[in-house]
Amino acid sequence: MLSCEHFEQNWTTWKAAKLAPVIADEMLAHSLECAHCRHYTAETDELRTLLEHSSLYQPSAEFAANLEQAILDIRRRDVARSMRAPGLFPRWAVLSAGLATGLAIGLMLLLPGEIDEQPNSNLAAVTPPPTAFVPDERLAEQTASSQRADEPVKDTLRARQDTAVSPPFEVNQRSRMVSSGGR
């Protein structure tokens, strides 16, 4: 036999017809037998009907665009921070490595015949991985050139309203964003 406490606990789920049939039968039986729970049902039914009259509010029309802009700002800030952050190697080492890579690529372009035999060995290092996530390089470019800062990376929230086929959003999968504490 179902207790009154369980009856009250299951009441909303029962009303939504989401209870397992066995328990729903028990609820029905209990409501027929128990005056307290019959009263509870009547009162709660009435209240919930009234609550259905309560307003349903919505945020302003600019909400989606504002959110998108806020997230874009955070991403830009994170990219800028990661560009400034001291890496594993000293800056001069990174710069020299970049210079050496540039020189190597320049040589490859100037002397294509000599390295034709093994065209892919070095290419793998400079070809971006075949992934849907265009990484933060473009975002970094945008961050660096503040003149173009307002150019959106991707307008998904708005694009979503404009068209059913929206382009893939670019997510920085590698660099985890610094959290400000969710809980």
């Binding site: 349903l56 919505q58 945020p59 989606a64 998904t156 929230l157 979503r160 959003f169 999968q173």
Partner: peptide
């Protein structure tokens, strides 16, 4: 979490109104 940001859009679409109602009713300030 796996990088599909359209999933985030969908989360926003699903929770925008219920969460707004929850927050607004607690704060009473739009």
């Amino acid at each position: 979490q796996n990088g599909d940001a359209q999933a985030f859009d969908e989360i926003v679409a699903r929770y925008r109104i219920p969460l707004y109602n929850f927050i607004y009713r607690i704060l009473g300030d739009a």
